[in-house]
Amino acid sequence: MKPSLFEYVAPASLDAAIDALTNYDSSAVLAGGQSLIPTLNFRLGTPDAIVDIGQVVGLSGIDFVDSQIKIGAMVRQRQVELDERIHKANPLLREALHYVAHIPIRNRGTIVGSLAHADAAAELPAVLLVTGGAVEVAGAKGVRLISAEDLFRFHLTTTVRSDEIITAAYFPELSPNSGWAIDEVCRRRGDYAVAGVCVLLSLDGDGTCASAKLTAFGIGTRAVRLNIVEQKLIGSRLDAQTLADAGKAAADCVEVVDDTQTSGVYRLHVLAALVARTVKRAASRARR
């Protein structure tokens, strides 16, 4: 399984990279390669050009700006996972990264790469969505921000245009009072999720849920907010019955299909159980 022929371009600047993208009918950005290269090897993807942004200046930074963690396009997942400052600012990231594949993949794969690849069963898009993050995108027409809600369109499809490159991801810092959790069910360690849930919530002084955001992944064609579930939780005391009801309500937020390994019914069942479990865990971490 070897890649087909392509033009290989390794620009040193962002402008040169964008130019390269526009010069070819079909081109692909190579950063960590952990999602791209398998498609090349299977010849599922046969782009005319590969634009390797590994040498582009300015993409390897981790910066803390305006309560956001800005992660450059070439920053590796494992780097983020091990970074203590990031962990303090947004502990959801490290916990999510533990579920992503295996260490050698995380050593080379990038945070931005996972977002750009937008696998419906991936963890990082769900984290971006639940934290209200965004990506910075540079193209021939300039730079723009795409919020998480607007980024993920479909399995393996984002709203980034073919002549644009994601240059950084912004993950908001979490407030120190937040409760947070991520959990998933998968067949083997490191596999894509059969179903997964991310939670971010906060509690009032008396323990009532003041805010709640939940995203589900692995369950449909992209990471989605579980709005109906959120509404059930907000204002409640997050008691067992509320959690059970909220879990059941998750089914109304998603569209699920059977596949050959997993029935839709099972997925929804698991989703409901995960909602209850993650909300409980998040609540135990929240400070009133």
Binding site: V185, R187, V194, Q261, T262, S263, V265, Y266, H269, V270
Partner: peptide, 11 residues
């Protein structure tokens, strides 16, 4: 026996 098929048997 996958979790999904076990679930089907349980339900």
């Amino acid at each position: 026996l996958s979790p999904s098929s076990l679930h089907a048997a349980l339900t």
